[in-house]
Design a protein around this nucleic acid. Structure first.
Lengths: 137, 137
DNA sequence: TTTAAATTCTACCTTAGAGTAGTAATTGAA
DNA sequence: TTCAATTACTACTCTAAGGTAGAATTTAAA
C-alpha cells in the first residue's frame, strides 16, 4: 500500500519547482543533490516529465529545467497517471473485478471511506496546495 | 496504491474459511477452483498461512485445511504483515524518512486523514467483520 | 572554433513480486 | 500392502520496477 518510487521522486521534484519559482533553471545535477535522488535515475524521470509537459527543458550548456505550467494546474493524480501508479477507482481492493453496491467483495464496505479520501487527495491536491515552507525535500 | 496480489489472495482465502465454518476440510484443489486462484500459487500461499498459524493443515489423503483460530482473532493487518505488505504508519508517503508534525514532507498534511482511515481499516477489521453473505469470493 | 556543461537516447543490470514445475512426504482407503 | 489424494518442499521462470552506464546531441561561454 504505497506509491511507486518513481511517483514519489516525481512529486518531490515537481514540488521543488513549485516552491522555487525564481526565474532560473535547475540542472539535473543540482536537483539530484538537493533532493538526494540518484542522478542517472533522475535524468530518466526528468525525460518523462518533459514529455508529459509538466517540465520544460533547455538543452546545452547553461541549460536545465523549469516548470512548464502553473503549479495550480498540476494535480497529483496527473503525476501518478504518468507513472502508471494505480489510481483506478473502479477496480476492487481484493482484485475481484469491479465492485459496486450490488456486487461487492468482502472488504468493499470497509474500503469505501478510505478509498474516497484517497481519491479526493489525489484528485483535488495540486502542487500549489502542497506544504511550501519548512518541508523536507 | 494497492495491495499485493498475495495479500489479496490470502484475505480471500481466509475470508472463505471464516464464512464456511462447517466442520470439514477444504483441499487446495477445491479452494483454487472456488476462488479462481492458480493452484500452484495457492499451495505456496497456504504454506505461508499455515506457518503463520492462521490455518491448520491436515496432511495425507482426505487431508486439507481449516481455520486455526476464531475469525474474530484474525485482523487484516496481521495478514498484510505476513506478506510484507507495507503498513508501516511511520514511514512517509513520499519516501522521505519519518514524518511528524515538526518535520514533514510536502504531502504530509493531506495524507494524515486518509492514512488514519486506512490504518483504522487494517487494524480494526477482523475476518468476522467482513461481508459474509452475497459477496464475491 | 574549441570546449565544457548540460540534456537526450539506447541499452543494460538488479531486485522483488508473481507464478510454475516437479518431486518428496504423508496418510487414509481399498 | 498398495495406491491415490493430499500437503510440503525446492528450485526455477517471467515480468515490471528500480537503477546504472555510456555515448550522442545541443548550446553557450571562453
Amino acid at each position: 500500500m504505497q506509491l511507486h518510487n518513481t511517483s514519489q521522486y516525481a512529486i518531490r521534484v515537481l514540488n521543488f519547482f513549485a516552491n522555487h519559482s525564481d526565474d532560473r533553471l535547475y540542472s539535473a545535477k543540482e536537483l539530484a543533490e538537493l533532493l538526494s535522488i540518484p542522478y542517472k535515475f533522475l535524468t530518466k524521470i526528468m525525460g518523462i516529465l518533459v514529455k508529459a509537459e509538466f517540465i520544460k527543458s533547455i538543452q546545452g550548456r547553461e541549460g536545465g529545467y523549469e516548470l512548464n505550467k502553473p503549479a495550480s494546474q498540476i494535480k497529483l493524480i496527473d503525476i501518478l497517471n504518468t507513472f502508471n501508479d494505480e489510481t483506478d477507482n473502479e477496480s476492487c481492493i481484493l482484485g475481484v473485478g469491479i465492485c459496486d453496491g450490488h456486487n461487492k467483495c468482502a472488504l468493499h464496505d470497509q474500503w469505501m471511506q478510505p478509498k474516497g479520501l484517497l481519491r479526493k487527495m489525489f484528485e483535488e491536491t495540486t502542487l500549489e496546495n502542497l506544504t511550501s515552507a519548512d518541508c523536507k525535500l
